Amino acid sequence: MKQLRVLIAGTGFAGKGHTEAFRAAGTEVVGIIGRTEHVVREVAADLSIPYAGTDWAVALAVLSPDIVSIATPGGAHYVQIKQALVAGCHVFCDKPMTTTGATATELYELSKAKGVKTAYAASFQYTPSVQHAKRLIAEGAIGDPTEIESISHFNLERDIPFGWSHRAEDGGGRLNNNFTHSLAIAQTLVEGDILQIAGDVRDDLGRAPKVEGVHDFTKRRAFIPENLDDPTLEWGESNVEWSYTVMARLRSAMAAKPVSVLFKHGGLVPRFHDDHIAIYGTKGAIFLKGHYGSGALFVHDGTDWSQIPTPSDITDAMPQGLGETEQCWHILSDLFVRDIRGETVAPYPTFAKGSQYQNIIDVIRRSENWAEMDGGET
């Protein structure tokens, strides 16, 4: 079987991570595309990628890749994905899929019409602790699951330089970049289908300083201006949510009634207790430390809490020597590549889920679930 050829879009942290993930999956990364010519050439040289360019359409035509990997901010995804689908490429896309439910649905329908494989990287469901919790729930450790809570507070610096994360049209916002992972984890834990959703969002940032030179999203803190009172400093206005509260109901074959889920995220506020994901059932509960539940796992057996180590068969199956984000990319890209090759693999998130999530985000942002009250005593 021929070696599959991959073209990468994006030269930041995600682009580099996708490159290594697809190489580990046995593919050949033949090109990389970025916005800035000198940057993309430097990254291509560092990663030993033979083709570097700034024109996505030209790269598709010249390289004729089997797979494209979209690792750019969400605002660029629609055009890049559509051109790749028209060219008949399989598409691996980081979240968010696009910036609106309508465009995500359009691309999902196009992917079906073209008969290609797709992957959607809401991928923190693949951490060892989440997979361990999923196994315990399936084995009946907590009885029928009844409720999940997913709580996180990031305390992000308010003066991180203005960029794509501040703009809805560029794929910013905490729903696109945090909730997508949390919702996928909740579904994974109870093998649940989404029945109902309601939520509220809040932009409690307002504005951020405009600073030149930010390229790698993970290093943007280093560009916070020293003098925020400088009268020459320009400011950009945020138009996305930095906090959200979402409620959902999931249908699960493990439970007689829908599982209730609460998602609470504050992007700019400090945590007091651990961020966590907790799953409650009719006979016990599971507590996962960490905003994506990737820390220590505790089980309540109806009497007391006990920490349970991750089984060796789960940890041994994980890619070694990688950060959590990169580890999950490796797992998903491996499933994706094996599926393209015709192997039988476990279900993984595709554009079906990506388009569903984008439509859900539209619903939450509209916040139409409020009932007006008179504001006084009854």
Rank of each mutant, 00 (worst) to 15 (best):
F162A: 04
F223D: 02
W305R: 14
G354T: 10
A184Y: 07
F336V: 05
Q187W: 05
G74T: 12
K283V: 04
P50T: 11
G206S: 11
H77F: 05
E157G: 15
H330E: 00
E20A: 14
Q125V: 14
D144F: 13
V68M: 01
A102K: 15
S333C: 08
F179G: 01
G302C: 02
V130G: 03
D362K: 09
S69N: 08
D230L: 09
I361L: 01
E169S: 13
I360H: 02
H265A: 09
A285H: 12
L156Q: 13
S312V: 14
L60V: 04
L189P: 08
Q3E: 03
P311D: 01
D362N: 08
V62I: 05
Q3C: 08
D362A: 02
W164D: 02
Y357I: 13
R249V: 03
R135I: 07
V211G: 07
T54Y: 00
W329V: 10
I185N: 01
I277D: 00
E42S: 14
G266E: 05
I277Y: 05
A248P: 05
S306L: 10
G53W: 03
G293W: 09
L136W: 06
Y120T: 13
I314K: 10
I340E: 00
F13P: 07
R251A: 06
S252A: 05
Y51H: 07
F287W: 13
V214H: 03
F92D: 05
E324V: 13
F272A: 07
P161M: 03
G295Y: 10
L205A: 13
T245I: 14
G53E: 01
I70W: 04
V91H: 01
D313N: 14
D66N: 14
S150F: 08
L136F: 03
S129A: 11
L297M: 10
S260T: 14
G376T: 15
P73I: 10
T127E: 00
A121N: 15
H276Y: 11
Y51N: 03
T27G: 06
E234W: 12
I67N: 04
V6S: 05
A253C: 11
N155P: 12
K264F: 07
Q356L: 09
G17A: 10
V29R: 04
T232Q: 08
A24K: 09
E191G: 15
F22R: 06
V130W: 04
L233P: 12
R271M: 06
P161C: 09
Q80I: 15
V86Y: 04
E42D: 12
G192T: 10
G213Q: 04
